[in-house]
Structures are given as structure tokens and as C-alpha cells.
Design a protein around this nucleic acid. Sequence first.
DNA 1: GCCGTTTTCGGCCCGACTGTTTTCAGTCG
Length: 576
Amino acid sequence: MRNAEIAAALGELATLYELDGANRFRVIAYREAARVIRDCPHSVAELAREGRATDLQGVGETLQMKIVALLDEGEIPAAVKLKKKLPATLVEITRIPGVGAKTVRKMYDELGIASLEDLRVAASEHRLRGVKGLGAKLEENVLEALDRIESEGHEERRLLSETLEVGEQLVETLRQLPAAGRVELAGSARRWGETCKDIDIVATATDPEALADALLEHELADERRSGGAGGASIRTHNGLKVDLRIVPPAEFGNLLQHFTGSKEHNVKLRERALGLGLSISEHGVTETETGKVQTCETEAEVYKAVGLPYIEPELRHGEGELAEAENGELPNLVTVEEIRGELHCHTTLSDGKNTLPEMVEAARRRGYAYLAVTDHSASHGFGNDVQADALLERAAEIRDLDAATKRMKLLAGSEVNVMPDGSLDYEDEVLAQLDWVIASVHTSFRMSAERMTQRLISAIEHPLVDCIGHLSGRLLLKRDPYDLNVGPIFAAAAANGTMIEINANPRRRDLNERNARLAADAGVRIVINTDAHQTATLDNMRYGVATARRAGLGAAQIANTRSWRSFAPLRKRTRA
DNA sequence: GCCGTTTTCGGCCCGACTGTTTTCAGTCG
């Protein structure tokens, strides 16, 4: 059973308990455990089988037992019992924004509303207002929310790249204004998360209303919501919600820290503050005893107030970063500027949009010291296959171009397909004539974890494979990663000196940050590649670097931060 | 239900907003 399924079962049980009126901290404990399990990079089912689920922060003996029961019986007995007492469909109703367990329970007890359909009927007949505490506005909100759920499903997340396209433009516009002081993106966009729900901007201004108005009047704004000296809120034409908050400069650090999150990080930070007799909010740091408030112009001051050094936004997961900060163990994170070479890109030979010379020139302009050209291989679909003779012809072309290109090394490479049996789709004698080989899975995604793991290990052990491309095959918001066991894969990669890429395409970010961390800890050499299919997407490097940073990795762990001289001998083909 | 540089019991993050209310509970981020 996957972690996501276990997490979903515990999340449902949390809501059932909440509907049943259980102690709210018990409910919080189940939700927290569900979150930890969802994010855990290992199989929690396996951990639970070994009795080690309690290794996870937030999972105790009770939950360990409940997970095992879930694995054995397919259901948690406590949930079965509660579902006899209450309709399971009540859980769905709590998905409506503004309608929580307490409200659902009240509507069920007093009006017999047990499902979303019941709720729609009752709301349109204005029967909700008959319940104390519920009114006309709720009926209106409920009907709107039900329409939205039916038409587009619920809350919509989108790729960071789509969010930044809007967010960076808005920030740039606001910064140009004479009234603007500091203007910064906050939220998950500033932490370089994979996907975002909305855009948070925090600012200071000499004329706050002018800044708020500028957002309301921006050409990207479709729906204009509130506005004033405290900030403004809009929805863009493509449906993104944008919140701007404006505060006096003295509080800017508090506000930026608060709205950068993550929520989990902030919770941990406030817990730490409490232990020091302090209370942290978006307005300042308060001494609990005296009520004295310290405001902070910078985030660094907020962290200093609780005895910590500044923590980079990408590290604010709410996991071990506070302890690392306290012990002086925060990593020195890799930067885009430190990347010296690109090792995965395509040209018009396969499915790229730009020619070989165009890609080379674009990489040269970015100041790279080396570029590997890695078109798709012989069995690639959609008419983009490259047969062996065409590849070797291309390799000769690349070497000619290399000889004529100053200050940049060009590598003749390929992104070869790993077939379902683990073999590659060029003969070894062809691969031996290349400078660099990436092996990727592009077909037969639906294999068992065991077979997929073996398939990848076969490629990793191949003496002419330098690197594995987009390991999990996931497409964010579109396609789940295929089943595989990363433990043996990383062990094999480390043992064989096979590198693994962080694919920087913002739709992939693959390795993800958790696996990137595990891989680095296992001793795997990691490279960050854009997999660019045109010159413009060479710029996606920043998303791959972001994933590495979120994994806590520094330049030393990323092979393509090395100079060409230092990188070249890391390839297998240069060894005896 | 979980957990421990105040702890194995007694706590468990903070504030704003909303809608419904004459002072607040519920929900959210």
C-alpha cells in the first residue's frame, strides 16, 4: 500500500473523529501523522510491518497498530466503527471551504444533511438559516462552492513556473513605482515549491494606497477584490489569486517571514519561541512576561530573536532545519551561478525546436564551460527516433563544431531508452563512440516496483551509461511517478559511479527534493540538467537548482558545478 | 494521540476573517 493511501485513510479517520466530537488534539495528531506519512520517502507500509512506523515523528504505538490493521484488513477498525455511527459521506462535505466538521455535524443532527446532494437541496430551499449560527450567507457560499466543485473539481494548484511568470511580473511592476519600498514574493513561490495555489506579495511603501491601487489596476487583474492601505487582493485573468500585504518598514521582516512559511516551519519556530518565553506572529516577537514587542526589519532579526542564524526559504520545510540551524549545520546551498555545464538537451535531430548550432550558441552565451547534446535514441516514438548511423553522423558534426568552438567543450551524447528488460536501444559499439550517455525510461511505465527497480539497476550497471535521466518519470499534476524502490537504485548508482540527474524541467523536478537528499546521502553524484528542447528552456536550470537547494545540497554534491577538467574524469568511459 | 534542554503528565502555534452575532465560535492559512 502506498504512503498516499495510508495518509488518506488516516486523514479520513481524523475527520470522522472530528465529526464524532473527539478531542481536537487527537484530531490534529491524526492529521499530522497523515502529513508525515504522505511526505515520507520510504514505504511506510514496510516500516509498519517491521514495527518501525514509530520512527516517524508524530506516529506512536497506537497509529503503528492502526496502520498494520489497515494493511491487514484494508480498513481501520476504528473508521469502520465510526462509519456505522455516521454516514461516511459527511467527510466529503467538510471539503467545502468555510464548512468544517462542527458545521457539518450541526447540519446533520438538525436537518439530516448527510451528503453533498442533501446539502445542495437544503441550501437552495433556504433551510440552513433555520439552524442557530448558520445564515443566508452560508447558503450562498455553499451553492457557489458546490457549483465550483462540480465544474472544476476542488482547489487547483499549478506549476511554480506558471505562478512565477505572473508573480515576477507583478513584483517587477510594483517595484518600479515611486511609492514602493521593498517588494518581495513570499509563500511557496519564494520557497521554490513544486506547485503553488496562489501568490503572496509583501511590501513596504511610502504611499501604501498607491501601491495597492497599482495592483488593482494591473493589466493582469481580472477580478478586483479588496484594496486599501493594508494591501490588495486580485484574481488574474488566468485565475490565480494574488494577495499583496503592505506594512511599515519596521515590521517587514516579521511579515515576510510569516508569509514565506512553510506553515509547518512557522509552527516549529513558534513552538521554539514559546520555550524561550517569546511569542512570534506576523507583527513581531513578543516577550510573554512583559508583553514587550520587538519588530524586525529583516527576517534575519526574527531568527536571531530565537537564537538562530538566518534560514534560507528553500529549507523551511518544518523538518530538521531548526535543529540544523541551532547546531550550526545549515548547508551552504548550491546556486545557479555555480552551474558550469549542461548535460542534457535536444535538437531538431530528435524532438527539439532549435538546431545544433543554435543550442550551442545559446549555451555559450550562458557562459557554460561544457554542453552535452543528447537527442533521443533509436526506439523513441512520435517520429523522433534517431537511428545509429544518424547518431554517429551527428557525433562527427559535434566534434567538428567542438574544434571550432572556443572556451566551451561540446560532448557528443545521447539520451538512450531503457527497454522494459533493462537493455538499451543502441549497440554497445555505438555507445562506445559517444562522450556522454544518459539512460531514461520513456515506455512501459506500469511495471511492478520490483521489475522497474531491476530495469533501472540494469541501466545503472551498464559500463557505458554515465547518468540516469528523470528517474521517476513523474509529470507534476499530471502523472504519478512509476513504482520503484529508490534505496537499491541509489546504492547501485553509488557503487557503479553512475550519476543521477535532477531534471530541471518545471513539469518534472525529478529527482524530487526528498530523493535528491537520499541519493546524495547514499553517495550518488548528482547533476542538474534542463533537458532543454529549445534554447529558451535552458533557463529552466533555476528550477533544478531550486530542487537541489530544497534538498539541502551544496555545490560539492552537484557534479556539474565542476570545471570541465574536473568533471571529465567522473565519466565511466574515462576509466580503465 | 503524541511527546519530552521546564516533561512520562499536561500540555499541544498565532492571528485574521467571516458570519453570525450583541461577544464569539468556527475556519483558515
